[in-house]
Nucleic acid binder design. Structure first.
Lengths: 356, 356
DNA sequence: CAAATATATTTACGCGCGTAAAGTTTCTAT
DNA sequence: ATAGAAACTTTACGCGCGTAAATATATTTG
């Protein structure tokens, strides 16, 4: 038996047995194991005096129940899985951060995963996650790159709320941004303040929202009686600034400086495009003496600090995160989930800065 | 007992019992549980013919051992903890990504945590992590904001490699960048190509590397016979671009346009500073007709796409990640870890772009 | 083909905890 | 004070798997 010695405030010394399990901890606090077990399940479920005794013992011995033993015997754990397609993307980093905080505040243990843009990793993650018996999962799927069958079967077993990218009829709910509104809002603004924009996007974007944004652009232009004017960038993967830069150069050259106003499908593309403008000596901004106006969409954390500041439509991060978690919690209680699937779309907020 | 029916290719139908545990799975594959257990521990430890039988059964039944039961009975798990101070910072997002991939490739399950810049969360994470019995932990501590005692006691129990921020004598090893070299390299370059820089940093930076960079700056300036010229930005937290922007405006105004060359303590600060320059109408660049040269340090993913491209010193991400993981694996085997602590510092690479 | 060796089986215990049932003590309310 | 409820203790089983020991079977070697 191991002993360690701990100096008390008064100078007295008390022998502290190293606690190996709940049995020993219960003995140390002068209670029975079932009572202590009850306490860890819900501290308010025991008598206040009992609770105090346990909490005092807890300070002395810093014991924690073995999570593996606990989780083995629970049907469901207190874990909430959070899966994003690409964590190195600041948008997902930011929303994951907010989601994590909300889960922690609600007394759950978030477990964060990134698919790193790869289908086989997304599948592996869902496989792992299923075996973790999570209380629920917040999933932003790869989208285009997802294996629908895998995600579908996963959602059949685990309460899941999809966010960011929707997959038709999969999961208990979807929470995301109204991409159509994003584009129509921005097209409207750009048209009023200068001229209607051409659209700069990827031909094969990694994220399916891009498609909705394109459709939104086309619709918004049509509503104003304009022909859509779309330039598609080549390239695949998540290195969006690079693609925006390189293909931006090409686009600028093709248009021979006659650029007017460009709406980029997302902020990272726009950031690359801004670099391309700088490279070609184009002055960017809403100011009449400038050569081109550039706008983006997403409200990327850095968009405020580009030169010039990027005019964009920002996701409502807080609301999306809040509603995702809240919706998930609803389904976690619900016995007969799967009966009705809800979709929630939130509007973006126009951030007028000096680039357009 | 639950049955489900599965149509075979030939049209034949086979009854598939739902496998509940290793016992049932062993029965289904016509083997004993201990043998199957051995297989999952190491597939090559059973006879090839046996292995084939299990793998075939595995395809039919997609059974996975209960991770909680497995981990309860193992002294150590196959988990590797990865802890970063702030995941929404692209530098940490990027290095975490690389670390994760390396762990996966080595057959481990990375578990990713962000302290979100808060000490109490860092402590909680370490607490959780300890109870997870991880094989090892890769820890980038908050640094200044860390609770030394907590980290120390954690490292005493778990093989831990610190990265990014060093804490004196804590952990089995430290792997990071040589911040002194970063600054001396940059000061050297800037002095040769224009004039020696003044230094723009935070007064109370969230990351302790900032201190080393300041010292490096002072030393490098002294080596060239110059007086150091340091401007300290106010503000706390991780919103570095904002601080760089707002305090950058102040610094520019104080210097009345007479700015010369500025070296920012890190790229995010520099990005904010660039925005401040743009706001004040200062032309940034190495070109003689520009008003100011701006340099940063870190090799931030976006630094290439600022306008103008940011001259900076880049971390050797791949090497740092690789050596961190490799070092950790070494200590994981080692029985008498703790005898000697190693520190590895890697040099940064100068990225000459057009901002300085 | 027999002996030597490698591999599998059988049996059994332990891990740390959830949880149910029955009995005992403590609290609350009249 | 006393009944009744609430909380606790005791006892006991189960979860799914790791793992050790003894035994049985299969494979390799000469």
């Amino acid at each position: 038996m191991t002993f360690r010695w701990k100096a008390e405030e008064g100078g007295a010394v008390v022998s502290l047995k190293t606690i190996r399990n709940m049995e020993e901890f219960a003995a140390a606090s002068g209670l029975s194991r079932p009572t202590v077990s009850k306490f860890f399940h819900d501290p308010s479920s025991v008598r206040p005096s009992t609770r105090r005794r346990i909490e005092e013992a807890l300070e002395q011995y810093d014991y924690r129940p073995n999570i593996y033993a606990v989780n083995q015997n629970r049907r469901l754990t207190k874990t909430i899985g959070i899966v994003v397609p690409f964590l190195a993307d600041p948008y997902f980093a930011e929303i994951a951060r907010v989601l994590e905080m909300r889960c922690i505040d609600a007394g759950f243990s978030p477990s964060l995963f990134s698919s790193h843009g790869r289908q086989e990793l997304e599948n592996d993650i869902l496989d792992t996650l299923r075996s973790m018996k999570p209380a629920g999962v917040l999933l932003a799927p790869l989208g285009r790159g997802s294996d629908r069958a895998v995600i579908e079967s996963f959602c059949a077993n685990v309460p899941t709320v999809l966010f960011d990218s929707n997959i038709d009829k999969v999961g208990d709910a979807f929470v995301g941004s109204d991409n159509g509104q994003f584009t129509s809002l921005m097209v409207d603004y750009l048209s009023r303040t200068g001229g209607s924009p051409w659209f700069f996007e990827m031909e094969t974007p990694p994220n399916p929202n891009a498609r909705k944004r394109r459709q939104g652009y086309i619709a918004a232009m049509a509503a104003q009686g304009h022909e859509p004017d779309i330039t598609q960038a080549q390239g695949t993967g998540w290195d969006l600034e690079k693609i925006g830069y390189e293909e931006g150069l090409r686009a600028i050259d093709e248009r021979k400086g006659n650029c007017g106003t460009v709406l980029c499908s997302n902020d990272r593309l726009a950031i690359g495009f801004l670099a391309a403008c700088f490279k070609r000596g184009l002055r960017v901004g809403i100011d009449p003496q400038c050569d081109i106006r550039v706008a983006g969409m997403d409200g990327h954390p850095i968009s405020k600090y580009t030169a010039p500041g990027l005019t964009t439509v920002a996701h409502d991060y807080e609301t999306i995160a809040g509603r995702s978690v809240q919706t998930l919690f609803g389904f976690m209680q619900d016995e007969d989930r799967g009966t009705q699937r809800t979709e929630m779309l939130f509007e973006g907020k126009l951030l007028m800065r000096s680039s357009a």
